[in-house]
Design a protein around this nucleic acid. Structure first.
Lengths: 298, 298
DNA sequence: CACCCCCATGAATAAAATTTATCGTATCAT
DNA sequence: ATGATACGATAAATTTTATTCATGGGGGTG
């Protein structure tokens, strides 16, 4: 029992602030308090955590590694405390939702809005970046629910399909394909393809459309935000693969045209994933049920 | 900062021992020490952790949940301490290997034996049961390396194929199929199938052979250990799907016969999985390299 | 070179955890 | 019933631990 929560806190805060003194201030402690605490830890483990170089602290390899541990474990402590206080006050909590599906954000907002009204005691937090991917974030208790098009049916996780949609090609008002019934892979060989900045193997337009046909677009432009992406498409700077409902929603404003991908189109499903141990948490069930119900309404 | 490591330790130990007094003894503390610690925590969070029923403690919902947190976080603390001490002594460590592949155990032993000689400062631990599956155990830092036939190419994980083999049907010396060149799914409809006790979707004989043909065996017997399984097969109590190399290794002792599954046979690969953050740990690299090299030798 | 900033150290002090001692109560055998 | 026993709660005493205060050393910097 040598390594304690306080040590992790100190290490994290020093990494954040850059100095013991600054970290001490943020933790409402004095500088010697931290100095003593860490030196005791170093003595007990026989490891240096920082190398004292001049007046600044350079983390050693062990220090770097311990920082990673701190970043992983500390949020779990604070979340555990929150969750325990929730037990005191009945059904109240925080639902941490992770997103692995850029355009789903619009859809998610439509679910979250009425959910917040129905569950006034539940806070919702949405996160998008995960060091170990969405699945890793679920297993690592970084998030409680995952919105993803790639479910993983593994022990310990539960995925529920909540939304079917068709992935289409969005083209601008001057585009030669704007009235086409469908588009074939070869017809994209000369196009500029705009996508979200994720690896190609996570993009359906590649995995389900271009790659099987052995086609590459003329150019590939990654864009972060949906609005800018659609703006680019509307102004003839390229084409993008997006959900049909999203293209149709933006069509009046941006003058976009959806074109089916291939003869049969590309069908997609969005899943909500959660840990099985959370299966009986009331406000989490409710979210999945609301999301699933939105399907029939929409 | 109300929830501390000691609280988790107490909760875990009380759940293990069933009483405060017994837990106190194991922790080299007195009973009032634990009593005070937990009551303070309860006061600070406003939650009851145990309901005092007579002379025994019944965990509340919050208590149950906190126990799960303890079981998840405490091993990470002890492992972090171990790992930090390793930094002090150079290349020394503990390699926690998880197995999702029953018959691989024999193969693993052949890798571990020379590895222990080459890396005398590294301890190896092998585990087989995981609440959230092998992938979850990797993400949750329960294990450092996973032996599995089902890799998952997700950000944060790295899988390396280390072993190709053919899955065959093992039959006994009196079996009608013992000299057959191959067996078709329909021919197993009247057989007793012996497998390891895992869900059918994790058994290749189902997913790659029986299910596609819509066939079910006459009976399905789960058996834990390879030796007993082979004994059952050798004595005509059923058939089992196993790696060819394993069947051939046991053949002289048990008088077993391998039969190819289908015309083309069922090809399998074993992968070693690890977290990308561990990619540059010397003794872990070395293990993967040794495992991959064993392929060419065997 | 003087000043500032930052960390280390040791002693003093404040805070905390732990023990000791004791009580109340449920359980069980007789 | 009832006494023995096991268990947890509690309060006060004590020990241990954490934190602060006061101070010193050293490396940058104007």
């Amino acid at each position: 029992m040598v390594l304690e929560r306080i040590h992790l806190t100190i290490i994290q805060e020093v990494a954040r602030e850059g100095s013991l003194t600054a970290a001490a201030a943020r933790l409402h402690l004095t500088q010697p308090a931290l100095s003593h605490a860490i030196r005791k830890l170093e003595a007990q483990l026989g490891v240096e955590i920082w190398r004292r170089e001049g007046r600044s602290l350079q983390p050693t390899q062990a220090g770097e590694w311990l920082l990673a541990v701190a970043n992983r474990l500390l949020p779990q402590f604070t979340h555990a405390e929150d969750r325990l206080r929730q037990f005191a006050t009945g059904e109240r909590g925080k639902l941490r939702i992770g997103m692995e599906c850029h355009p789903c954000y619009q859809w998610l907002l439509k679910i979250v809005a009425p959910y917040l009204d129905l569950w006034p005691e539940v806070d919702v937090d949405v996160r998008q970046k995960f060091q170990f991917g969405g699945i890793g974030a679920l297993f690592g208790h970084e998030i409680d629910m995952l919105v993803t098009p790639d479910p993983l049916f593994k022990p310990g996780l539960r995925f529920t399909p909540v939304f079917d949609y068709e992935q289409v090609l969005a083209v601008g008002p001057e585009h030669r394909l704007r009235e086409a019934e469908y588009v074939l892979p070869g017809e994209l060989a000369g196009e500029v393809l705009i996508t979200y900045p994720v690896p190609a193997e996570r993009l359906d337009i590649y995995t389900q459309f271009l790659l099987p046909a052995g086609i590459s677009p003329r150019q590939h432009k990654p864009i972060e935000t949906t609005d800018i992406m659609l703006l680019m498409v509307a102004h003839g700077r390229g084409v993008a693969a997006l959900p049909r409902w999203l293209v149709e929603e933006y069509a009046p404003r941006f003058r976009l045209h959806p074109v089916r991908l291939g003869h049969g189109g590309v069908a997609k499903q969005i899943f909500l994933g959660m840990r099985e141990t959370d299966a009986d948490v009331g406000y989490m069930r409710a979210f999945v049920e609301m999301a699933a119900a939105s399907q029939t309404v929409a």
